[in-house]
């Protein structure tokens, strides 16, 4: 299996995601340049954190027009696994791969600190390695991570069991404490917390590795 990590101009967690997959999870990973029109032979794609295109205009608003996002959309349509972390989540939302929006944090300040997340569903290729209800510790680092959607969308997300992670103590004002959601096909996850920053004990937590391990297990399963 091979993971691809997209590099937009302004991505700054690309190397961290690549390192977590290649050196800690121990699976092959390559960087995908933003103007490539395909995701190559990658079996899973990660949209990393950072400030793609400077986050000018609006977070993710310019990134959605980059050539690689056309390829990522097609890859997702065919059922490929796509994980958007932080800025990657914002890009998925802007691209229409996930519903809702991410707006300025309640309190209007950038927040960087570890938070506790409750695993709401294990019925996904991103959370199967965790236990339902398991509380995971991962850091957040964002200024615009307040998840917003209308009630109908929120009801639908809940009815379809598409909320994967909720904050135990909501740090940013996200509606219904949402920290990470799936698309309808359950093969695209967007989450504001950073699993790649919580992938080894030296970083204070290894809980994020469960997300990558779940993906690896799903890919192995689909091959078998």
């Amino acid at each position: 299996m091979k993971f691809g990590v997209v590099v937009f101009p302004g991505s700054n967690c690309d190397h961290d995601a690549w390192y977590a997959v290649s050196h800690i999870l121990g699976q092959p990973a390559e960087l995908l340049w933003h103007d490539s029109a395909s995701v190559g032979d990658c079996d899973a794609v990660i949209l990393p954190g950072g400030f793609a295109y400077g986050d000018y205009l609006r977070c993710g608003a310019i990134a959605k027009f980059s050539p690689v996002m056309g390829a990522v959309k097609e890859f997702a349509r065919q059922g490929g696994l796509v994980l958007g972390i932080c800025n990657g989540f914002q890009i998925l939302v802007e691209s229409g791969l996930l519903p809702g929006a991410l707006i300025r944090n309640r309190g209007l300040k950038f927040i960087c600190r570890p938070v506790k997340l409750r695993t709401e569903t294990t019925d996904s290729p991103f959370s199967s390695a965790a236990a339902k209800g398991q509380v995971l510790t991962m850091p957040i680092a964002h200024g615009e991570g307040c998840y917003y959607a209308d009630d109908r969308t929120l009801d639908q997300l809940e009815a379809e069991d598409r909320v994967v992670f909720r904050y135990v103590d909501n740090p940013n004002g996200s509606m219904r404490d949402i920290a990470g959601i799936l698309n309808e096909g359950r093969n695209v996850l967007g989450m504001m917390p950073h699993p790649e920053r919580a992938s080894e004990p030296l970083m204070g937590s290894s809980d994020g590795l469960l997300v990558l391990q779940s993906m690896a297990a799903a890919l192995t399963g689909s091959r078998a």
Binding site: H15, D16, Y19, C112, A141, L202, G204
Partner: peptide, 19 residues
């Protein structure tokens, strides 16, 4: 001084061992 340093991304590049 958390009010100050929690506004800084002090973890990016996953090298920060003592925050």
């Amino acid at each position: 001084k958390n009010w100050i340093w929690e506004q800084y991304d002090h973890m990016v590049r996953t090298n920060t061992i003592q925050v």
